[in-house]
Design a protein around this nucleic acid. Structure first.
Length: 363
DNA sequence: TACCATGATTCCAG
DNA sequence: CTGGAATCATGGTA
């Protein structure tokens, strides 16, 4: 009975009433049984209205008295339980949402582009991917590639700086709210679960901001990429000297115009172009030569003559004891040591066929 | 401005 | 992965 009285007084205290107002629970019961609840409520209202007249010290003192009440924890835990069973459980249903597919998509893209993820591997992987798409090797070091890499690094830097800012703001805000709630939990019932839930809400809010950041970053990468690809399409004719070197090789290897990897590298170096450009050039040259051998005949003769002249000048410088000049002797060793490949054989047969039967161009 | 030349890209087969 | 073939897109020129 004594305990009950204490709880009652505590609750009344919470309602802002003075403990002296209702001291005896029996008296309360008596009043109720007498059928005077309206009078009772009137009193309580009166007392609530009177709170504003209380001094701050009085209110603080009452608050303190309440906080120190030994039944307070029990009361709060009951209230928390009720709260969870009602309000929070309703909200809880929509809590466990699966990871947003949109944000997963953005994350994957940022990772693939080398914006998020490990610094060096990611960035170089992206550069390599772009280089591969451009048909060049990552070590080409062409202006476009370095430009692309620099721009990507810039985007990456901004992204990480912003992300860090958001994370910091998020944790600061979370801490602030947690402290606030902890503080408030002394004066109103707040369960740890509720705090946790609140933190979750904050994180979700911040992650939506993060998603916006990720989205803009993806857009920036896309724009950069498209610009890069546009630039890639811009064709520049090789200079005269480069074309000469490539043609020289082509016509002096007409029987097997398939430069080895080393030969391609050598040619690339000589022409100041990439290995893939050499491959492209040979691919185009073979197909165009084959399509119209007649048209290229003059060019072929010209380069055959040039090669012969070069060879002659080289052989004249060499001693008589050296091996007799061949069309290839003026070329670097890598050029002359190409094995006769099956493609070469196929190429020769087809070319010969075309020379003999130009009218049968369908073959 | 039309036309051809040419480097690059794409698709496919081996 | 490489090369053939078709195609695209741009450069150069008459």
């Amino acid at each position: 009975m004594e305990e009950q009285a204490r709880i009652m007084s505590g609750l009344i205290g919470l309602a802002g009433l003075s403990q002296g107002d209702v001291v005896d629970p029996d008296a309360v019961r008596k009043q109720h049984s007498l059928g005077q609840p309206q009078q009772d409520i009137g009193d309580i209202l009166q007392q609530i209205m009177a709170i504003t007249d209380e001094s701050l010290d009085e209110a603080q003192a009452r608050k303190h008295a309440l906080n120190c009440h030994r039944m307070k924890p029990a009361l709060f835990s009951v209230l928390c339980e009720i709260k969870e069973k009602t309000v929070l459980s309703i909200r809880g249903i929509q809590e466990e949402d699966p990871p947003d597919p949109q944000i997963m998509r953005l994350d994957n893209m940022l990772l693939a582009e080398g914006v998020s993820g490990p610094e060096k591997g990611g960035a170089s992987a992206a550069a390599a991917a772009v280089a591969a798409a451009a048909g060049g090797s990552p070590s080409d070091g062409s202006i476009e590639h370095s430009d692309y890499r620099a721009k990507l690094a810039q985007i990456r830097q901004i992204y990480h700086a912003e992300l860090e800012k958001y994370e910091q703001a998020c944790s600061e805000f979370t801490n602030h709210v947690m402290n606030l709630l902890r503080e408030q939990s002394r004066t109103r019932p707040i369960s740890p679960k509720e705090i946790e839930r609140m933190v979750g809400i904050i994180h979700r809010k911040f992650s939506s901001i993060q998603m916006q950041l990720k989205q803009s970053t993806c857009e920036a990468v896309m724009i950069l990429r498209s610009r890069f690809l546009d630039a890639r399409r811009k064709r520049r004719n090789f200079n005269k000297q480069a074309t000469e070197v490539l043609n020289q090789y082509f016509y002096s290897h007409l029987a097997n115009p398939y430069p080895s990897e080393e030969a391609k590298e050598e040619l690339a170096k000589k022409c100041a172009i990439t290995v893939s450009q050499v491959s492209n050039w040979f691919g185009n040259k073979r197909i165009r030569y084959k399509k119209n051998i007649g048209k290229f005949q003059e060019e072929a003769n010209l380069y055959a003559m040039k090669t012969a002249v070069d060879a002659a000048s080289v052989s004249s410088q060499a001693s008589q004891a050296n091996s007799p000049a061949t069309p290839n002797s003026a070329l670097p060793k890598a050029y002359t040591s190409i094995p006769f490949t099956p493609q070469g054989l196929y190429w020769e047969v087809r070319s010969t066929f075309k020379v003999l039967f130009p009218m049968l161009s369908v073959v």
